[in-house]
């Protein structure tokens, strides 16, 4: 899923305070799992903004709202009217939801309340970790199910580098060395011999480098 983190409150406030009305708008799927952007968080953020507005004696109408997903037209039906009469929207979705609103409502200013941080999992309660960079050409089949593109700080396809120490990355003792994990997995699977196969030079044109990506289902 997509993981996001709320921006510092001061940064959010600076973006929106010029408006007379703000709809604080939650997205209740991915970013609600990490308790940063769901409808509940929209409600809390709206009250914080109301308090700030009152402290600064600014007359701003701050309402909260939300839908299941800000990245799909279908879910906007019930809030369409509300958004159309809003003066601005503070979206708690990932960057996709923010842009979806910008495209859907060409005259409506929309601001991001979150920094979209990564594609990750829920490792433990309250712990989210990056696992994928959507490189467009998945290598997990040859790396024992561990992704060096997203989990090695140098995205080395034939690792580990010389900085791997006690299973940790050279940049931080809090980061697992992805290639230690790959080697351990290959060994557990009885496939350590495969370590010596050189992973070929990658086609990054399927990644961000190739420009914005899309795909179309035929027959829809």
């Amino acid at each position: 899923m997509i993981v996001g983190e709320q921006k510092p409150f001061d940064e959010i406030w600076a973006m929106v305070k010029e408006h007379k009305q703000i709809t604080v708008f939650g997205c209740n799927t991915c970013v609600s799992v990490c308790h940063q952007g769901g409808n509940k968080e929209a409600e809390i953020l709206a009250s914080l903004l109301r308090m700030m507005a009152s402290q600064e004696e600014l007359d701003i109408v701050i309402e909260d709202s939300g839908i299941e997903r800000q990245c799909e037209h279908l879910f906007f039906e019930k809030v369409n009217e509300k958004l159309q009469r809003s003066e601005s929207v503070l979206s708690l979705a990932c960057g996709i939801g923010v842009q979806f609103i910008a495209a859907k409502y060409p005259n409506l200013p929309v601001y991001p309340a979150l920094n979209t941080t990564f594609l990750g999992d829920v490792q433990a309660d309250g712990l989210f970790t990056e696992k994928c960079q959507a490189c467009g050409d998945c290598l997990l089949g040859v790396t024992g199910g561990i992704c060096p593109v997203s989990r090695c700080c140098k995205r080395i396809l034939n690792g580990p580098c010389g900085g791997s120490t006690n299973g940790k990355c050279e940049i931080s003792a809090d980061i697992d060395c992805a290639w230690q994990l790959v080697v351990d997995r290959l060994e557990a699977l009885g496939k350590l011999d495969e370590y010596e196969k050189i992973i070929p030079i990658k086609d990054w044109s399927k990644d961000r480098a190739g420009g914005p990506r899309s795909f179309k289902l035929e027959g829809f």
Binding site: S164, C177, E187, L192, Y195
Partner: peptide, 13 residues
Amino acid sequence: ADPFKIRVPRLAK
């Protein structure tokens, strides 16, 4: 560097 067990295979690579 670690893991030691692949340090020779890595040279071979």
